[in-house]
């Protein structure tokens, strides 16, 4: 493997990290919104949220990506492939993160909210200061593994023409006729990224332990 080829792969890995990072962040925000909606007592709000979660968890990401990639132009929206990729990954991960956070919100002990009631905290203050931090901390391991899933799943955006790590490896494999080293290197780069994220996740989990052993 020449250094030039390696540099191309590493640069493409940068795009993989960027696409995944943006999608995870947007997906977390959207997932938070959807999870709150799914917990609403109004069925008009909670049922659509649950259907949303079920759909995006029930359809293969590849099919979602193909659909979005073809749907946007059909609806007259012309966007670059990268944007379609981020939209697809965001919608998909938001459904998983919503389901995850829903469980987190349900596990916040009632007593902590009663104490907040007695302290005079309003609904919005309780949400921001008590419910979100505790729900996120409780579900942090799942959030981290979901982030790693999205990093890996971002390889599928190669299919809709985004030249990220997998697509770059594919292009180089066919131009050099050496698929083995190209895909093996791509795989190793994914491993390096995932293991880094997992390490960061563990560090975060340690911080969110708040004195527990």
């Amino acid at each position: 493997m020449s250094l030039t080829l390696l540099a191309l792969l590493v640069r493409a890995a940068g795009l993989t990290v960027a696409i995944s990072g943006v999608s995870i962040a947007l997906g977390l925000a959207l997932g938070l919104f959807v999870s709150v909606a799914s917990l609403s007592r109004r069925r008009l709000v909670s049922v659509p949220a649950r259907v949303y979660v079920s759909f995006f968890r029930g359809v293969p990401l590849l099919v979602q990506l193909l659909l979005i990639y073809n749907l946007l132009p059909a609806a007259g929206i012309d966007v670059p492939g990268v944007v379609a990729a981020v939209v697809g990954l965001t919608l998909c991960t938001s459904a998983y993160q919503a389901e995850n956070l829903r469980g987190g919100f349900l596990s916040v002990p009632r007593g902590l909210l009663e104490a907040a009631d007695m302290a005079g905290l309003g609904a919005v203050q309780q949400f921001r200061r008590i419910r979100v931090p505790i729900a996120v901390a409780l579900t942090l391991p799942t959030l981290v593994s979901e982030a790693i899933m999205i990093l890996k799943a971002s390889s599928l955006v190669s299919v809709v023409g985004v030249v990220e790590l997998t697509r770059m490896a594919q292009d180089l494999a066919s131009s050099t006729y050496r698929p083995l080293p190209m895909f093996a290197t791509a795989g190793a780069l994914y491993l390096a990224i995932d293991w880094t994220v997992a390490g960061l996740g563990h560090a975060l989990e340690r911080r969110a332990r708040w004195g527990r052993a």
């Binding site: 799943a153 599928l156 490896a169 083995l180 895909f183 795989g187 491993l191 995932d194």
Partner: peptide
């Protein structure tokens, strides 16, 4: 850890395109 840490698509490419080598 390798199978869980890398994308399925890359594993598939490695096997299908790299296998013959």
């Amino acid at each position: 850890e390798v199978l869980r840490g890398s994308p399925f698509l890359v594993q598939l490419f490695l096997l299908y395109f790299g296998g013959p080598f």
